[in-house]
């Protein structure tokens, strides 16, 4: 038995065969230790090359057999298969959103009942950090400074809710900027995601509130407070907020400032 590196000794004969295959395929650097091992293996085992050739022939037959199954459908039925998959995925998404919203409503109701209050039907006050959207504007200098350094949230994809991203807006606030991502709904309604840096705070569950006459669902996420508001039913807004929260957790909450021109999104400098 020839000497093998430790990494190769702890498995069966596979590594040597694999090395020899790689060598015969020309995939090994001729000066590498692996190439030396492969050459040594082929020299010392006269049947190895024949075995590898035999394996290749079997695998070519196998590939041909699988191709014979896979290819005939490719041209004819592939578009139908993919279209059906897309339709079913969309239907499943809708179902998840509906059951998610229903479950959220039940949880809020049950939580409220157990705590002796009903937060879902008794919207509280919005967090002060988000109220600044409708508040007083800072002077232009402060706004520009805030705009230059303030990160924005990577825009969540909400097409599943019928929402298309239309604008990324930064508004001035006395102690920094507040970012708003605007989405247009199917009826022309505007849904806004408001993001404001607040400093470290534990992540929270969703809170219900109202802002400018519309429902607001908000929560704290890392260094930010995030709110979703628009002229929608509270359960629909909650479902959107859940989705935003999931996406924000799947990716960094904030990203480098980028207006996403490929989406036609413009940065609107609107100091108020």
């Amino acid at each position: 038995m020839k000497h093998l590196p430790d990494t190769l000794q702890d498995t069966d004969a596979g590594p040597l065969d694999a090395l020899a295959r790689d060598w015969l395929d020309g995939a090994l650097d001729p000066d590498s230790p692996e190439a030396a091992l492969a050459r040594q293996a082929l020299e010392s085992d006269s049947g190895l090359a024949a075995r590898i050739e035999s394996d290749r022939a079997a695998e070519q037959r196998l590939a041909a057999a699988l191709d014979a199954y896979a290819r005939p459908q490719e041209s004819g039925r592939a578009p139908a298969l993919i279209a059906r998959a897309a339709r079913r995925a969309e239907a499943a998404d809708r179902w998840v959103r509906r059951t998610g919203a229903a479950a959220a409503a039940i949880l809020v109701f049950a939580g409220g009942w157990m705590a002796g209050s009903l937060p879902a039907s008794d919207p509280g006050q919005p967090p002060s950090e988000l109220v600044m959207l409708g508040g007083q504007a800072a002077d232009a200098t402060a706004f520009q400074a805030g705009l230059a350094n303030e990160p924005v949230m990577a825009p969540p994809e909400l097409t599943g809710h019928g929402l298309q991203l239309t604008a990324s807006i930064t508004r001035a606030a006395p102690d920094g900027a507040l970012n708003a991502l605007e989405y247009a709904g199917p009826q022309g309604e505007t849904v806004r995601i408001l993001v404001r840096r607040t400093g470290p705070a534990p992540s929270e569950t969703l809170h219900q509130a109202s802002m400018d006459g519309d429902p607001l669902v908000w929560w704290r996420e890392g260094d930010h407070v995030i709110g979703v508001t628009g002229p929608l039913r509270r359960d629909a807004l909650t479902a959107i907020a859940e989705d935003v929260r999931l996406q924000a957790r799947g990716a960094p909450v904030v990203a480098d400032f980028s207006p996403a021109p490929e989406l036609g999104v413009q940065v609107v400098s609107d100091p108020g």
Binding site: T7, D10, T11, D12, A13, G14, P15, D17, A18, R51, E53, S54, D55, A57, A58, E59, R61, L62, A64
Partner: peptide, 24 residues
């Protein structure tokens, strides 16, 4: 990866035994 290599090695052995690998 070591596990995978081992699985492939066993699969090839089994395939070799089962198939007459003469060119088609």
């Amino acid at each position: 990866e070591a596990t995978l290599r081992s699985q492939i090695s066993r699969a090839r052995s089994a395939l070799r035994e089962a198939v007459d690998a003469e060119p088609v």
